[in-house]
Amino acid sequence: MTSSAPARWRFLGTATGIIAVAALAALPFLVDAYMLHWAITVLKFAVLTLAWDILARTGQVSFGHAAFFGLGAYVAVLASSTLGLGQILSMLVAGVVAAGLATCLSALFFRVRGIYFAILTLAFAEVLKVCATMLTGMTGGAMGLSARPLFGGDAVKSYFFILILALFTIATMWLLSRTRYHFGITAMRSSPEVAAAFGIPVVPIRTIAYSVSAGLTGVVGAFYAFYTTYINPESAFDVAISVAPVIMSIFGGLYSIAGGIIGAVTLTLLQEYLRTTFEYGSLIVYGLLLIVSILFMPKGVWGLVSGLASRQRSPAREVAS
């Protein structure tokens, strides 16, 4: 009994995972182009949310991931148009550049914490937006840049690209959760000082987390640029890009893969639906959800679900012992 309950849950988890991956692989052959676009959007936000969560797990909440999203978008478009790199290579370069920038920034940015870090990152994204608008020679200014469509406009290939990126992100996070760094990161979140007193290399972990988080966000930005074939400063450095992962994580449940996915899927679909329904103000629901989440559901949907699940499981554990 003692071992069977966790084993059963693990089996359920694995089974769900396999079925989900199979369904996702089959999806493009089952749905129309419109639905496929939605699926791509959902996956895009799932990666953004999970990437953001990697940094959040160390205890720093960024309100400015649009900086890396937009940077990735511009770098990829410029790399492919001016340097003539292939699109996939351009997207990788975008990720590397974003990660590199984050590495450089971390020594400066992590000098502040909490709300000040949030405001700092927000301001940084805005600075990049201004740069993108004003450096017209390179970026085309407010007019933006257009790019060749990704995979020659083959939405199914685009879908598989973003799906693989999502699975890669999930796999990375899952593998990380099995190493000692998972413990180090969780401990840092409680208190970086105390964590350091127990030998946890706080500074390198934080730097790497920020870089990985930024790199993945940069790749998504690059993907977005090629997928939509057009970027401008307003769309690439949109505050909404910074805020989406915060909202999705908090709604779904912070610091967990499942929470991030739940948040990204639910809110992206909701938002897409509302946007097609209302001309203005579709973000009202977003705002209200945030308020309600913080007031009544601070651990998010996943926190609620896993809380209920563990409450159901705990009597079994007592019987067993």
């Binding site: 203005y280 973000l283 009202i284 705002g287 959800l289 308020i291």
Partner: peptide, 15 residues
């Protein structure tokens, strides 16, 4: 911060 952000987002979109 997230709560006041939510209020901000709501009011903005109501407007």
């Amino acid at each position: 911060l997230v709560l006041t952000f939510g209020i901000s987002l709501t009011l903005q979109n109501v407007a």
